[in-house]
Design a protein around this nucleic acid. Sequence first.
DNA 1: CACTAAACGAGACGGTACGTCGAGTCTTGGA
DNA 2: TCCAAGACTCGACGTACCGTCTCGTTTAGTG
Lengths: 197, 197, 197, 197
Amino acid sequence: MPQDPGSTRIGRPRSEESRAAILDATWRLLKTTTLRDLSIEAIARESGVGKTTIYRWWPSKVAVVIDAFLANALLATPYPERSSSIEAITQQMASLVQALSGEYGHILAQIIAEGQANPDALDSYRNHFVNHRRAEVKAIIQRGIENGEFTPGLDPDLAIDILYGPIYYRLLVGHLPLDQQFAKELPEWAMKALKPT
Amino acid sequence: MPQDPGSTRIGRPRSEESRAAILDATWRLLKTTTLRDLSIEAIARESGVGKTTIYRWWPSKVAVVIDAFLANALLATPYPERSSSIEAITQQMASLVQALSGEYGHILAQIIAEGQANPDALDSYRNHFVNHRRAEVKAIIQRGIENGEFTPGLDPDLAIDILYGPIYYRLLVGHLPLDQQFAKELPEWAMKALKPT
Amino acid sequence: MPQDPGSTRIGRPRSEESRAAILDATWRLLKTTTLRDLSIEAIARESGVGKTTIYRWWPSKVAVVIDAFLANALLATPYPERSSSIEAITQQMASLVQALSGEYGHILAQIIAEGQANPDALDSYRNHFVNHRRAEVKAIIQRGIENGEFTPGLDPDLAIDILYGPIYYRLLVGHLPLDQQFAKELPEWAMKALKPT
Amino acid sequence: MPQDPGSTRIGRPRSEESRAAILDATWRLLKTTTLRDLSIEAIARESGVGKTTIYRWWPSKVAVVIDAFLANALLATPYPERSSSIEAITQQMASLVQALSGEYGHILAQIIAEGQANPDALDSYRNHFVNHRRAEVKAIIQRGIENGEFTPGLDPDLAIDILYGPIYYRLLVGHLPLDQQFAKELPEWAMKALKPT
DNA sequence: CACTAAACGAGACGGTACGTCGAGTCTTGGA
DNA sequence: TCCAAGACTCGACGTACCGTCTCGTTTAGTG
């Protein structure tokens, strides 16, 4: 995911072909193994690329996987433009539950898991998947506070955790499914915590 | 009079000494490595025990770790006997946040992480750490519904996820700390979702 | 192969049943594995006997095997009573080649092989299979020297090596078979080295 | 013009340094242990080489040992150019007895022993140490038959076994030493079996 | 008939080595 | 300068036996 912006580099240029082959192979392999059991060796083998090439451009397995994820699965679930903050969030939460119930959820879970043994991986995850999203919803919540949908004095960070925490909890612990009913009821009930009495 | 089943086992009896040494060493090693980097080989080396002995009694690394966890950190955080369900839960949530903010939280996170690549581990985690706890709080919530503290029609499972999800979210994603403020505010706000309007 | 001759021992006497079971199992296993791959563990398993019992009565794997060999295969090939030394030896050599061409030869070879890494085993082999046989044939050769069949001044030890060495050479190196032709021609030709010119 | 096969191999070339270190360590270890007790693990440890590297280039322990043997002990004992076949063979036999009485004999014995449990090892032994030597002496014997030194109708294979069998017999069974006297007397006497009367 | 004492089966114990896999690094020739 | 190929050291995997040990049980003789 690197590289020298702007200047004209000398020597043989990076092979776009290899880059694509690596990300493709990674994505393909992730469908049949877990991130933990995925090996750089296997990626190199599967993509017909030298191990060195992978090590040259990515610092770690997770970095490759995150790139592969970004290349293959944008995981949009945008916040719809609505007059109401509550409606916008509710709708997005439902989309997210739906999205995470499948393959994407599985891989995201693997990335978070990897992050427990690997601070860089967790950092990377937060930078690519968390921070931007939280900023976005934080703005919407702020707006909700201002227009009276939410309790004044509400801490947006805490609010986000209350709304989204349950989703990741189920994703990672798996005690109950990320199903339609959950997608519908979670926003309904959790949102009550944010509304003024 | 009932006969103790399997009481008189033949052959050399299991060495309690070895068992303890293994769990001790595991716990000790977990403080300096991650579960993923912990190896059976290292446990054997550190505890002065043959690898065979470990494999004889535990099916996997995680199983040892869970036993070590249970032996070293009961992670009590019981629900205090209170007249009010809300008070009982509030208090326990605060204790839990406090407990998970340290070493125990770190190791629990590792176990959940391991579970993402290893269904048996996740199962084991749920059986040892989740199911019992959820049943307990479910009963308290039920009581709260009955005595009017909580909205009739509230799904206890969903309620639990709203209350505790944020804790595990922060534990695993680490975007914000499990600090005192969180321990105080989360129950206050999240509980609002459960109360009748 | 031990035990306290004469005195009346107290305590539970050695189990003849176990002894037989061990030798049987050993013999049975030797037909499908090599001596090297034969394990005490397997003998115990196969004979339904505790490992301890084997270690109590035999100092090593080879000792068991030699006992099993002696119990199951006396490997007679006696020297026939003949007027002529040459005829007696010739006949016995042919019998020996025949005997060693099959299962017994295979196992004897294994024992000699084991002996290369294990002086005790080689000693044991010589005591049980070599010394007595050599003494016997030495006497016959001596007689042959005296009655003029063999050259005066012939060293019986050297003579034995010339006669029998080729047999063990083929047995162990396996470059050529221990077949009927060899059984017939070896004595014919080798004997010429011993006769007076 | 024939193309050098495998000449321009790509990838990192094999490390001659490692190869030498492995053979050296093997040879060194063989002086203090037996082939049976020699472990690949120990060779790797002693030579400072990864186990993988050994397994990459040799299929088995014996293969390494044979290479180490060939590298360290060519065991020349050539047949001197002589007018007389008898003299040539006599001389070489004496050299061989001398050579096998020491370290080389010990290791050769180990290899033959290993061969009893391992057909590939025995094959390897024959290919590297036996076949060529036998062909050589066979030619000399043939010449001896033609020029009247040996009995017409003599089977060279049988002749070789009569001459050399006793040497290997003593080497492997160890009932008598491979000493100077044996080196002198064996050819004298055994040769008589081959000569015309 | 109780008592002693050795042998017995079962099986757990600390070890060593097995042959394999992947990690991350290094070293070639060719593009 | 990049790339593929592939060799390098290292360390862990889970398994098989080693020879020793500790049990409860069995089987005789002796008192």
